[in-house]
Each structure stands twice: as structure tokens, then as C-alpha cells.
Design a protein around this nucleic acid. Structure first.
Length: 466
RNA sequence: UCCCCAGUAGCUCAGCUGGUUAGAGCGGGUGACUGUUAAUCACUAGGUCCGCGGUUCGAGUCCGUGCUGGGGAGCCA
């Protein structure tokens, strides 16, 4: 007897006729007229469950096997045989079926062998990984994450674990979660009556990071090619299908690179990940295509084969002005692109991923590199059909005098960013980087429409269950 | 935060212009059945119609309000 994951058994790794053991959870049980039962068992190793044929002669057939319901954990030993029925290549002719864990109350077990709404499954986030859909999402998410690390590793990028707790409010990229060990019911005060953060754990105000970019730039200007991949936190009151308060972000930072180099990397990067998922998760992707999004596979293959459209913000505005569509908000040079504008560009006008480059200086962050005429900065957004902005990045301002001037204009405290400015004082070089929302990527790959369904336990305003 | 929509059995839903005892499918239980594929068939149990207040002889149904969920917008990844 030897143990196998269901994926191995279904792939025929153990020889036909050999005795194997599998362990997993019951998805369905069907009793045959002939006095035996079919049990579909899954263990998360692959999309398909394995069919166990439990003969009526089993000692515990009436007492246990016939009482199995969805969700029971079992251990089956038997012979791997070619299936006598249709629908699967292999099955297990069981010699023993042992129950490891019963479902206490089958009637209230939330995961039934039927279609559930995603809204309902969010309320049972601890059990939803047992469903087809969430098993598939989990495997795709994993493969995409592995592909990201592999992409960078193969190209000589180092993974930098930037801090999660930070004292800098980064680029002012939104509201931050405060980190404190102060007693909220009895806050220490300074003489002026302000909260005395000097007595807090770190001796100053601290927050959860909204981006690892500033920190990773230091490693970029030492190791040349680096990236972060970790949790990111935004305390914004965003209630949409594409925002989370806690999400995972990938941020490569590339030395000796300009905006065009960055766009090249962004395009290669996305294509690499999509290819990896298509190759490593064919069954899961087939499921998404069949049940979730009919275009799930074709839009990925198309995207892999099609060069991304690249255009300047200025050109994008021209296109939007000429569009015979009535927008709720005007498209005007100097205004940021609205969601409806982005959708038009990527879904209607080009029907392809679009890289919009060189935005007006006024609407972008201080660290983005100023153009010679100072009207624009070297920023880019990658827009994908059906998902909107998936990547945002820029060439960084590497010139000390220019970045200091911009910080002054924006009223930022240079003392606060002194270490960041050091990077411009000591051996500065042109460099560029982008941020990719990992969940948005998984959303796009799977065709899932709500970002809360592609992260195991979503955190959103008003909700931190599980 | 703003604008729309929704909340009925464990789940997915039906329930007409207000009118007897609120229904179905799936799931659960019991039983039947020569290999089933979310098996099939019969029987059966199961309800704070989201909460509160109001209109009415009478409210699942109409009105107000609160809560929860969803879609869209803003902010962004």
C-alpha cells in the first residue's frame, strides 16, 4: 500500500492494478442499484475528483459508507483500475473506506454539490476552498505567483522583502492603517495636548505599508534589478469589485532603465505569467472558460500573441475626444483618465492591452521623472480589457535638484525623505519600476469579476471576518 | 463616501393590482433500484418572509427607517 495525491493517481502514476491509498474530502456519493456506491473524492491536487467504487461487501458499508455526505474526510485504499464507466479514465476499487472526519450536521454543511452564489460563499470563506471554483482559483493563484518569482529570478532580479511597518507615508498613496501599541483608552499626551507618539512602540508614528517602492529603490541602486512581492495595505473607503484593504503587490525596480524599457518588461512579464498558467493549469483554465468566462483562455492566448498598444497620454486624449461615445466625464488634457475612458480605449477602440505613457505632471506623484518641457512625467499605466488598470509605473526622477524642487512645489517635508534623497546624492542612475496588483492579475486570468473571490480571506471596509 | 438594486426553508429561487393554512428545485432523513457522473424514483421533516415602526378589517406584498449584500462611480493596484 502506498499513498498518492489524487492528481498522481488520475495521471496514472501508480501502475494499473497496484494498491494505493488516497485521502481527501467527499464531494458526492451516489448509490448504485447494484448495492455499491460511487464516492467522488477531492484533495485539492487537481481539478478533477477521483471516483472511488465502494462495494457493498465492505464491513462498514451500511454503517458508514452509505452515510457519507459532502465534506466528510475519508481515507480509501484499493486497486487503481481503468474505469468501467464513462467520464473518467481511472478509479479506485476500494478494499477499505475509512472515515477520518464526519460532517456533524449534513443539512447545514454549506458546500453542497450545486451552484452557489459567490456572495454566499464569501460568508463561508473558510470552506469555499472545497468548491471547484475556489480550488481552481487557488491553484491558478499559486502558479501565477510561482511564475512571477521565476520570471524575475531567470532575469537576475532579486526578491527584496521590504518592510510592512513603515514610518513614511510613502507617496501619499492613500490613507494608511495606523500601527500602535498605545492604550487607546488612555493615550499619552504631550504638553501641547497632542498624542505623544514618542511613547509608542517605535517611538514615532507608524503605519502599514502602502507600497514597497521607496524602500526597494535603495536595493535597486545596489543590486541593479530587484522586485518586491508582498502584502500591501490601503485604508481607503473603497467599495468596489477591484479594491481590497489588504492585497498583494509586485513591484519590480530596474536600474539603468527608462520608461520604454519598463514598458518592455511589463509586457514580457504579463505574457510570461499568462503562458505559465495556461501551460500548468489546463484543467482549471478549461473550467473557467466553461463556467466563468467564455473568453478566459482565448483572451490570454490573444494577449500573448499580440504586441501591446503603446501610446502617449496626449494621443489617448485625442482618441477619446474623437470617439463617437458620450462620456459622463470629459476627456481633456490635464485631467486624469476616468474608468469609462480606460474601458473605451482598451475594450472598444483597441480591444487589446494598452500602455498609456507620459501623463501630465500635475496629476502624478513627485518621484516620477519630469520631461524636458516639464509638461509631463514619465509614467505609464497598463490597461487590460475587462479589468482596467492592472499596472501603474514610472521612470523615477533621479536628478536631485529636480526632485527637491518638485517636493517643494508639493509641500512635502524633505527631512522626512532624507534617506530617499540620499539615493540621488550617492551614485544616482536612471531607474524605473511599476506596481502590479496581484489579485487584479488573478481576476483577469480566471475571469472572476470580484476581487474578493481571488484572495483567500478578503479584507474590505467594514469586514475582516475569518 | 455617492447613485441604483436586492433581502422569503441549509442553498438557489417563485409568490400577480394587499385577501384563507407561504411554494418549487437542490440539499437532509427514510425506503426502493444491475456502473453511477450535480444518478433516478417514492415518502418525509424543515420558515422570526432581514430588524424596527407605520398605513389597513387584513402586510411576504404598500410607506418610513435601520442593517446586510450586490452593481456602478470616486480613490487606486
Amino acid at each position: 500500500m502506498s499513498f498518492f495525491r489524487i492528481k498522481e493517481a488520475l495521471a496514472g502514476k501508480p501502475a494499473i492494478g497496484s494498491e494505493i491509498t488516497i485521502k481527501g474530502w467527499v464531494r458526492t456519493r451516489r448509490d448504485s442499484k447494484a448495492g455499491f456506491s460511487f464516492i467522488n473524492v477531492h484533495d485539492g491536487s487537481c481539478f478533477d475528483p477521483i471516483q472511488v467504487v465502494a462495494p457493498g461487501e465492505l464491513a462498514n458499508y451500511a454503517s458508514e459508507v452509505q452515510k457519507l455526505t459532502a465534506g466528510c474526510a475519508i481515507e480509501c485504499t484499493g486497486t487503481l483500475v481503468e474505469s468501467a464507466g464513462r467520464g473518467q479514465k481511472f478509479e479506485i476499487q476500494a478494499s477499505t473506506v475509512g472515515v477520518i472526519g464526519w460532517v456533524d450536521d449534513p443539512e447545514t454543511y454549506p458546500i453542497q454539490p450545486k451552484r452557489h452564489t459567490f456572495e454566499f460563499l464569501r460568508e463561508v470563506a473558510h470552506l469555499r476552498p472545497r468548491t471547484n471554483t475556489f480550488g481552481a482559483i487557488t491553484r491558478v493563484r499559486h502558479v501565477a505567483a510561482q511564475a512571477i518569482h521565476r520570471f524575475f529570478h531567470e532575469r537576475g532580479y532579486y526578491w527584496i522583502n521590504t518592510p510592512i511597518i513603515t514610518a513614511s507615508d510613502a507617496e501619499g498613496a492613500g490613507d494608511m492603517f495606523r500601527v500602535s501599541t498605545l492604550d487607546l483608552t488612555n493615550l499619552p499626551r504631550t504638553e501641547s495636548g497632542a498624542i505623544d507618539f514618542g511613547q509608542d512602540f517605535f517611538g514615532r508614528e507608524t503605519f502599514l505599508t502602502v507600497s514597497g517602492q521607496l524602500n526597494v529603490e535603495g536595493y535597486c541602486l545596489a543590486l541593479t534589478n530587484v522586485y518586491t512581492f508582498g502584502p500591501t495595505f490601503r485604508a481607503e473607503n473603497s467599495n468596489t469589485s477591484r479594491h481590497l484593504a489588504e492585497f498583494w503587490m509586485v513591484e519590480p525596480e530596474i536600474a539603468f532603465a527608462d520608461l520604454d524599457d519598463l514598458a518592455d518588461v511589463a509586457e514580457d512579464f504579463l505574457k510570461y505569467i499568462f503562458s505559465a498558467v495556461l501551460e500548468e493549469c489546463p484543467d482549471d483554465m478549461a473550467f473557467f472558460e466553461k463556467q466563468i468566462e467564455p473568453e478566459a483562455i482565448t483572451r490570454l492566448t490573444t494577449l500573448i500573441d499580440t504586441p501591446f498598444v503603446r501610446l502617449d497620454y496626449e494621443e489617448a486624449i485625442e482618441i477619446l475626444k474623437k470617439a463617437d461615445v458620450k462620456f459622463e466625464y470629459p476627456a481633456e488634457w490635464g485631467l486624469d483618465l476616468q474608468t469609462e475612458h480606460e474601458r473605451y480605449l482598451t475594450e472598444k477602440h483597441f480591444n487589446a492591452p494598452v500602455v498609456v505613457m507620459n501623463y501630465p505632471t500635475e496629476i502624478k506623484a513627485f518621484y516620477m521623472r519630469l520631461s524636458d518641457d516639464e509638461r509631463t512625467v514619465a509614467a505609464l499605466d497598463v490597461l487590460a480589457p475587462g479589468i482596467g488598470e492592472i499596472i501603474g509605473g514610472s521612470q523615477r526622477e533621479e536628478r536631485l535638484d529636480v526632485i527637491e524642487r518638485r517636493m517643494d512645489e508639493l509641500g512635502l517635508d524633505k527631512e522626512h525623505y532624507n534617506w530617499y534623497l540620499d539615493l540621488r546624492r550617492y551614485g544616482t542612475v536612471p531607474h524605473a519600476g511599476f506596481g502590479l496588483g496581484f489579485e487584479r492579475l488573478v481576476n483577469y486570468i480566471t475571469g472572476m469579476t470580484n476581487i474578493r473571490d481571488v484572495i483567500p480571506y478578503p479584507r474590505v471596509p467594514g469586514k475582516a471576518d475569518f
